[in-house]
């Protein structure tokens, strides 16, 4: 395939993949700037290896790269002072209210690993076995993580606003 054909193919792929990919990045990071960087980086890596990526499965490739990039970004962060700890979404780069959704509320209190499992498995629709393999956990753990996250969400809804008894 000629170089220009590859470019056209890549542009079509980006146009189709971008809306979900960008949202997935936001669901992971809850930060618009970071989400933009994650998507840009994942797609640039896909472009750099486009011929090989296409054969491997472009969607699977960018999804994996996106989640890996998110985990890597978490890895590079430093601990923050204790006094920043509080209720709700008060982290830096807080998302605009319009970006919030039931799913993003579900993901907010989860650890990076749990959040990656939910977004990768359910939002990006990756096979349970692939998520489990990449994370080094059993498929049962992938399922139970989702169950517990949902349980927390329902609990949060049913007890919203209540203080400790």
């Amino acid at each position: 395939m000629a170089r220009s054909d590859l470019d056209v193919e890549f542009e079509e792929f980006v146009a189709a993949a971008w809306p979900r990919l960008r949202r997935a990045a936001w669901l992971l990071s809850h930060d618009s700037h970071e989400a933009e960087d994650l998507v840009q980086s994942a797609l640039a890596k896909a472009y750099a290896s486009w011929g090989r990526v296409t054969r491997e499965g472009a969607y699977a490739y960018v999804h994996r790269t996106l989640v890996n990039g998110y985990i890597d970004s978490v890895r590079r962060r430093r601990p923050v002072p204790v006094d920043r700890i509080g209720d709700g979404w008060v982290h830096g780069g807080e998302a605009p209210v319009d970006d919030r959704s039931e799913l993003s509320e579900l993901l907010a209190p989860l650890s990076p690993r749990e959040r990656s499992i939910i977004v990768w498995r359910y939002y990006l629709d990756a096979p349970e076995s692939e998520v489990a393999r990449q994370l080094g956990v059993s498929t049962g753990t992938v399922k139970s993580t989702a169950s517990r996250a949902l349980s927390r969400l329902r609990s949060a809804h049913s007890t919203a606003g209540k203080d400790r008894p």
Binding site: V14, W18, R23, Y47
Partner: peptide
């Protein structure tokens, strides 16, 4: 997931290709 809105806006293809 079905209720989750897709992102609006558009990708910066020039920047993506340049970085790639």
């Amino acid at each position: 997931v079905a209720a989750e809105p897709a992102a609006t806006g558009s990708p910066d293809l020039t920047a993506i290709r340049h970085a790639g």
